[in-house]
Computed example of a mutant assay.
Amino acid sequence: MSIRERGAPSRIRTTFMAYVGLTKPRVIELLLVTAIPAMLLAHRGTVDPLLILNTLVGGMLAAAGANTLNCVADADIDKVMKRTALRPLARATVPTRNALIFGLILSVGSFFWLWTTTNLLSGVLAVVTIAFYVFVYTLLLKRRTSQNVVWGGAAGCMPVMIGWSAVTGTIEWPALVMFAIIFFWTPPHTWALAMRYKDDYRAAGVPMLPAVATEREVTRQILIYTWLTVFATLALVLATGWLYAVVALLAGAWFLVMAHQLYSGVKRGEAVKPLRLFLQSNNYLAVVFCALAVDSALALPTLLHL
């Protein structure tokens, strides 16, 4: 076998991994963490496993498409920021035209997949999510306002809406509460990470809040949104059983303590570790939604039916 022939599998693998990188697989994990519990809550304990699988496939296609199109739009700033400099378009490992076509195919495919395997509402919600993430957040808000992730984060809340609608064909108040949980959780989660990489955002000209505000103001905003997150989490107790209620209360207290510690440390002029809050915010969301999934799968009596 020639050297050229031996190198072919390596090139194919490199190209394949580059396209996978465009979809931001780690970001898609949020879909898995939130969509399944939303579906289980929508019809407590009796959701068809095939429906869950089809919804996840459609949701992952939508998220992958949106993330790929985001990479196309943000290629210029990704090259400047150290945190994103290894992304495929920043390194030019994938042609921009190919990435655009790839993102559009994934996006269109998500609509037709959800439409044919679940219902039209879920497919439409997927399209709305992609359009909002690309046009409203990426192209309109991200480079213009320090509140970009507050409103742009709404795109990350949509998996619960898609999951709920796939089961019920409608949108009801528990889905809106789950939307609110993720909506309020997104700013402290994102800003804690951005505090670590604020110089990157400044270099790229992106007015992320930590890049344009003082640490005291940033941590104050983080604390406010953390309280709102916990309140929204507790509001869902009305539609769940005791297991979720206990976990939401304990996890909420834990999350608040961490946010208060960060804010207090900055007020005292101490060197703080915002990345710790970022990592633990992931754990918080995972714990709360896993508790929701178990509570719903067991079909524990809800407070509304006691």
Rank of each mutant, 00 (worst) to 15 (best):
V57N: 01
G45E: 05
V237F: 09
M178K: 10
T15Q: 11
W113K: 02
V127F: 00
T214A: 11
A155K: 10
A75H: 14
T219K: 03
P188T: 03
V33N: 03
L234N: 05
A18P: 01
R97P: 04
A194T: 08
I3F: 13
G252I: 09
V57M: 03
V149L: 09
F111G: 06
V246D: 13
T226A: 08
A92W: 10
G45F: 10
M81A: 09
N98Q: 13
T117K: 14
V218I: 06
I162N: 15
D295G: 02
Y137A: 11
S165E: 15
I3W: 11
T302R: 00
I3Q: 15
K24N: 05
V27N: 10
K24H: 12
F135G: 09
P188Y: 00
Q261I: 10
L89R: 09
K267G: 15
T84P: 08
M158C: 05
V288T: 07
E172V: 15
L304D: 12
R216E: 14
F16V: 07
V150P: 00
G59A: 02
V167H: 03
S281F: 02
I162V: 07
H43T: 12
M258Y: 03
E29M: 07
M1N: 10
E29Q: 05
R276W: 01
G269E: 06
L234M: 05
F179Q: 07
S2K: 06
A154H: 11
A291H: 01
G205R: 02
T240R: 02
V288A: 08
L56Y: 12
N119F: 07
P95A: 11
N70F: 12
P274G: 09
V257L: 03
L243G: 12
L256V: 04
A235C: 06
Y133P: 07
A232P: 08
A194G: 01
S2W: 11
V177F: 01
T117M: 15
T118G: 14
V237A: 15
V27G: 05
I3Y: 13
I182L: 01
A35N: 09
A66I: 04
D76K: 14
Y225C: 02
D199F: 00
K79Q: 14
W242L: 10
A99R: 00
L298F: 11
L277N: 05
T23R: 06
K142M: 11
L140N: 05
W242F: 01
G169R: 04
N70L: 03
G153Q: 02
Q147I: 06
I224Y: 15
T116I: 07
V287M: 03
H43P: 02
V20M: 10
A155M: 10
P49G: 06
G65I: 08
A126D: 05
L140E: 13
H260N: 03
A286E: 03
L106E: 07
L249G: 06
V230W: 14
S264H: 01
N54T: 07
